[in-house]
């Protein structure tokens, strides 16, 4: 065998190991969720259940409104993403292309918030939303997500990197700034918008600390909070019987949607995330 073939084989061997390690925990979650409880705690490693059962999925769906939590998460994440796209493409465009007093200082203040842990804002936000009577609503999660910093930064970086000729042309044709932004700039900014959309969606979808504090009922409770509050396997977190099968079934249900979406749209995901790092 040639050296080339050998190194190919080695490469594929490593690839298999990498894939297995990356996916094993997810596979184990799925396997466990499909086993009867007695089989779950039998010693020895059973990757394929001896008896398949959907009982855990049935009981978890009976007991907890997982569909409602998922819907809440979807609504909040989608609304937050749209809000961020709107606000950040406007602001990012202005910061990159327009000259105005206070631009530098404003942008510096915004960027500096990257280092402010959101935990410092949680208490005042909590009081603010309580006073507005908006705790336990979608708004309480959507609005703070709109104040995201990376989106503005990424949009600005993007607009700095593209030439302004098209905009100039439109301006000479007499279009207003808002019109230029809408019909010339935004279509151009598709890659950056995709990146910001994916990042925002992922971070809102995954957001836990703030929704944990601000939601109270199933009407607003998002998926991460529902999972942590009702399916935790940590002893003492949920009083009463803890069923591993049920927790894994819930986890599998929560993981299913994003994994499917990711696999279908993986090209956009990976490009989108990649873009967030390039122009540091």
């Amino acid at each position: 065998m040639s050296k080339r073939t050998l190194s190919r084989i080695a490469w594929y061997a490593v690839l298999v190991v990498v894939i297995v390690l990356a996916l094993a925990p997810i596979a184990w979650m799925l396997t466990t969720s499909l086993k009867p409880e007695s089989e779950i705690i039998s010693t020895g490693i059973q990757w394929i259940p001896q008896t398949f059962t959907l009982e855990h999925f049935q009981s978890i769906l009976n007991r907890y409104p997982m569909a409602q939590w998922t819907l809440n998460s979807l609504i909040v994440s989608t609304a937050a993403t749209l809000l961020v796209l709107l606000l950040d493409s406007l602001a990012g465009y202005a910061f990159a292309r327009m000259q105005f007093r206070g631009r530098g200082i404003l942008f510096t203040i915004i960027l500096s918030m990257l280092f402010v842990p959101i935990q410092i804002t949680v208490v005042p936000l909590f009081i603010l939303f309580s006073r507005m009577g908006l705790t336990d609503t979608y708004w309480a999660m959507i609005l703070p997500a709109g104040a995201n910093v990376t989106g503005v930064f990424l949009m600005r970086q993007f607009f700095l990197s593209v030439p302004a000729e098209l905009e100039e042309a439109a301006r000479i044709d007499g279009a207003s700034s808002l019109r230029i932004w809408w019909s010339v700039v935004l279509p151009l900014a598709r890659p950056a918008l995709t990146a910001v959309a994916i990042l925002t969606f992922l971070s809102t979808w995954n957001s836990f600390f703030w929704p944990l504090i601000v939601t109270r009922t199933d009407a607003a409770r998002t998926l991460p909070v529902g999972i942590a509050q009702f399916l935790s396997l940590r002893p003492g977190m949920v009083q009463g019987q803890q069923s591993i099968g049920q927790s894994m079934a819930g986890a599998a249900l929560a993981a299913f949607l994003p994994i499917i979406v990711f696999v279908v749209l993986q090209r956009y995901f990976i490009e989108g995330i990649a873009r967030s790092g390039i122009k540091g």
Binding site: I26, N206, A255, P258, I259
Partner: peptide, 8 residues
Amino acid sequence: VFTPYVVM
């Protein structure tokens, strides 16, 4: 390798 990251 990226899949775990989309799980919350």
